[in-house]
Simulated scan of single mutants.
Amino acid sequence: MTQAENERRGNVPPSNKRYFYRTYGLTIASQLELPELPKAEATSQPDVVVLTPGVAEKLEGATFRKGWLEMGDDRCQITIEGVARYRVEDGQRILLDRRVPREVDPVADPGDIRLFLLGSALGGLLHQRHWLPLHVSALKTPSGVWAFTGHSGAGKSTIGAWLHYTQNWPLVTDDVAVIKPHEDIPYLHPGPPRVKLWKDALAALGIQTEGLVRDLTREDKYHLMLNKGFQDHPSPLKALVMLERAEEGEAASLERIRGVEAFKSVMATLYRPEMGTEFNTAEQLMRESIKLAGKIRVYRFRRPWSLDQMNSSIEPLLHEIKQ
């Protein structure tokens, strides 16, 4: 058995070596290699540390427990069965324990371990810093950064990837990006450079699934890591587009929305809102969402669902972006 396998099973102490990366405008020092993230210069004062000690099965003093998530006192613990346990503390530390029960394979896939570390665990850390993590796909267009959001399955990854590949616009994020409320200009700070696409969208874009990482919860969805074509520095957010599915026979349409409706769209875009309400007050989240809605344009975009019509259905969107 290799040392790496032994460590994953919890049989040997973790290495003291540190790897340095950057994401969300943060410098991360990690005991675990994170090839999905851009590398950063070594520093004695990183913003975040990722450590691999043992973690207790339950979060002590938790005020919220539901399924895989426990929260309380600027800490949260995420337990993913068969993968790992993550404890996130004070917006500064992520403690990762790979010694969790597994039904079949005694060794968790390293890609799965990193998937939840870079997703829910980092999302909790962003909320602990009182930032606004937004669940969006965003691109750097000729008129600034446009972000797309909507309920699960609304097609934000599909439309982001479509515009990236057909218009050659750099992707800023395809999962989570963050707004830092203390900044006067609403800069969108990008997260890990990955794209999650359904199998039919990959086929329509001519991308093979061979070698891609399959999503753990959705069999026909795949993860692509794009080391090129991503913006890895913050840019001002110009517009947020709420995606909706058009009724059969309805033409694609783009509508500017304002006021309460725009505010509700921003609130609906928050990543892991249950974490947001735990580590902030409801009043804080509302205040910051209202402020953000007042600084950007907010739209509703309704389009036919067929990928065969995508090039024609995005015409109203392209017209507005290119004005």
Rank of each mutant, 00 (worst) to 15 (best):
G229C: 11
D74K: 12
Q45Y: 05
K264W: 14
G144C: 06
M71F: 04
K196F: 03
N311E: 15
K264S: 11
R98W: 00
R22F: 09
Q3F: 06
L26F: 15
I185W: 00
V88C: 11
A29P: 11
T52D: 05
N11L: 15
D105Q: 11
P38D: 06
G25E: 08
F116P: 10
T277Y: 14
H127L: 12
T63A: 13
H127F: 12
K39W: 00
Q167H: 04
P316V: 05
G229S: 09
L254I: 03
L163C: 13
T23D: 06
L318K: 13
L95Y: 13
D215Y: 00
G229W: 10
T2I: 01
E244F: 01
P101I: 05
E33V: 12
L69R: 05
M71T: 02
E278R: 11
P38Y: 06
K17F: 07
I159Q: 07
P316C: 09
E244Y: 02
D220W: 00
K66Y: 11
D105A: 14
P316L: 08
Y19A: 12
N16T: 12
E57C: 06
I159K: 05
E70H: 00
T2F: 09
P133R: 05
G211L: 03
F279G: 11
Y271M: 06
R22L: 00
G211Y: 02
A138P: 08
I257S: 06
E274M: 14
L59T: 03
L95R: 13
N227Y: 08
I257F: 07
V88P: 12
K322H: 14
V104F: 13
N168G: 09
T79Y: 10
R245H: 13
H164E: 09
P181T: 01
I28N: 07
G155F: 08
P193N: 13
R75M: 14
D174W: 04
D73Y: 05
C76M: 15
D308Y: 03
G91C: 09
L37A: 09
H127W: 12
S313V: 04
N16P: 14
S120L: 10
F148E: 08
Q77M: 15
E70Q: 15
D175R: 01
T281K: 05
I321H: 01
T27S: 13
A154W: 03
E283S: 13
L243C: 08
T63Q: 13
Q45W: 01
A138K: 01
E41F: 02
Q323I: 02
R8Q: 09
E183Q: 15
P236F: 10
I321S: 07
L26T: 02
L34A: 06
Y299V: 05
W169C: 10
V48L: 08
G153H: 02
R297W: 09
G61V: 00
K228E: 15
E248R: 07
A147I: 04
L171W: 04
E89D: 14
R214E: 10
M225D: 10
Y187R: 02
G82A: 09
E7A: 14
Y187Q: 02
G123Y: 06
V50Y: 09
P234F: 05
E89S: 15
V178I: 11
G211F: 03
V136R: 01
K199Y: 02
E288N: 12
H223R: 13
K238N: 05
L224Q: 12
L292S: 07
D200M: 02
P192F: 13
E320I: 01
